[in-house]
Design a protein around this nucleic acid. Sequence first.
DNA 1: CTGAAAGCGCTTACAG
DNA 2: CTGAAAGCGCTTACAG
Lengths: 347, 347
Amino acid sequence: MHSTQKPRATAINRRRVTAAMVAERAGVSTATVSLVANGKASGRVSPGNEAKVREAIRELGYVVDGIGSSLARGVSNTVIMVAPDISNPFFATVIAGVRAALGSEFQLLLSVTDAGQLPSADDTRRLLGLRPAGLLVDAPDPSFLEELSAPGPLVLLDAPGLGPEVPAVNLDVAQGGRLLAEHLAATGHKKVAYIDGTTGTTTFEVRRIAFLEAAGALGMEVPEGARIAATINVGLAANAFAEAWPQWKKLGVSAVVCATDTHAYGVLQEARAAGISIPGELAVTGFDDLPYSTTSSPGLTSVNLPGELLGRRAAEQLLRLIAGEDLETQQVTLESTLMVRGSTVQG
Amino acid sequence: MHSTQKPRATAINRRRVTAAMVAERAGVSTATVSLVANGKASGRVSPGNEAKVREAIRELGYVVDGIGSSLARGVSNTVIMVAPDISNPFFATVIAGVRAALGSEFQLLLSVTDAGQLPSADDTRRLLGLRPAGLLVDAPDPSFLEELSAPGPLVLLDAPGLGPEVPAVNLDVAQGGRLLAEHLAATGHKKVAYIDGTTGTTTFEVRRIAFLEAAGALGMEVPEGARIAATINVGLAANAFAEAWPQWKKLGVSAVVCATDTHAYGVLQEARAAGISIPGELAVTGFDDLPYSTTSSPGLTSVNLPGELLGRRAAEQLLRLIAGEDLETQQVTLESTLMVRGSTVQG
DNA sequence: CTGAAAGCGCTTACAG
DNA sequence: CTGAAAGCGCTTACAG
């Protein structure tokens, strides 16, 4: 009963239904079919013909071929979003925003690279070979943008520090850093540690610099040796913290600012294991305000970044560019807010 | 003389470089350009012409147009992966596996739907309009597959319970359920609770049924009222558990099996808050073995599902189908393993 | 309103 | 080895 399978009994051999087939069935030309199929019939196709074409389309199950259409029009109805890291839960909310704004006219396709990797110039050229109606690029690094010559409509997301002529929607993470500094200063901290990411993404730089500047201005100190970095991973962050804590304690550090909530989870975990009281002995803060930060114990004080809005605004801007409109503002910056929870203030 | 500078056009108005332009520059036909550009020159184009074409391609910065090429060949060099939920961290590892196996010949594009939503038939038709070389569909539901008529090469991932004629790579979550039951029986539990997901995904059904059957066979009981469900969210799972725990306690429940690690994190969190000793008073288990499960305290006993391998195998199968080869095995099932940690056995 | 026709950029028999 | 030519399926001036 072993089968020598030639599978796919499904209608794999079903012939592609073309506009020509519809045209023949409806007794009109392919031009008319095209008009009707694309919703451009009104005022250009007689009601009778339109009805006939619709009927034929229905009967045959005709769908406009994207490839043929793209070639004829010079561009596809696809919007491609390039993202370096989808494993970040934050990304899912950004996508949701993009989808919401894009609606059904354009098809959203994601091109992801391996974790932490940027798309190669080669990848990108191939992407452009698909003739996307527009490109959304999340968290690009500057060198990538240089390679990305001659795209059509392009909007960057979360790409701080670019020339003002590049359409972009940014998160004001610097503001978040300042809010954090103000909050910690207000709650009496003098010496603070900082746990950075290791990817060197611009947003991490901005987070760090904004915090450090504001902290300094507010009379707080980040002592020598109280600045470390760890990969974005709970366990690794926990280890890094465990190793650093004895020295920090000696230095008098009473708060630690983490570049991401994920780092902060590691600190919370290790602190619990080591019996460090939070926030009494050590206050902990993060960035991103991931879902778990509301429900961890204690809750994590974190900078909330509006991911859904980021995606939505970026897609809206892109839609304008695709429509050939000018952008009122090339660059949009979205405010971040500080969510204060039990990891910095006694519940 | 023309310059030998790199073909880095200055943005916006660069004219598309076509094969015809390359052909003219090299003094050959577009047929020859096509052969060279596609690496099919060997034995079909004279060395001299090949060199001339390569030179022209370099000078002009020519890239084969994906749309034109796809139309001529009938299929694109794109592989589209349809996935219902990218916010699941597990998914990132699957993608990594797919990318690794796919190599550089095919361009991987992701089509995601909103969380928990299946792609509509309409979406899918448009996807097929892009003429992908192959389709990968992650965690589809059966009704979706019915609509997906007449695709070319197609491989399903994590789609248990399908007819044997559909190429698929599955995770043996049933085995995971059995391992869990055996482990809990071996560690002396008699009454066990179960926290299910709410999405009704097939994999959740399989997890539950396999566990319940094995548990029954091993003499364990899941009492009336000790089966609840919660959305995949730490906080919601925590709440659901908090509400259920008093009754479970009365019933003599000493272990709880969660459909996902995320549910289990909620239980761990609430248990800590409520002073329930783990695993002494309550043993906790999950499915998925997410990264945090190694480092939570206590570590979470969980069924490890090989995500990277899942993606890799699926892509390998797809590559075979694309190449027109037969599959040795239509359906591949990957073993799951049980990672025993502190949430079920005293560290 | 309508259809014939000219592409869009490429690939691939085919004839030389 | 090589190039002219016929498409792939569609859209869009254009002439009627």
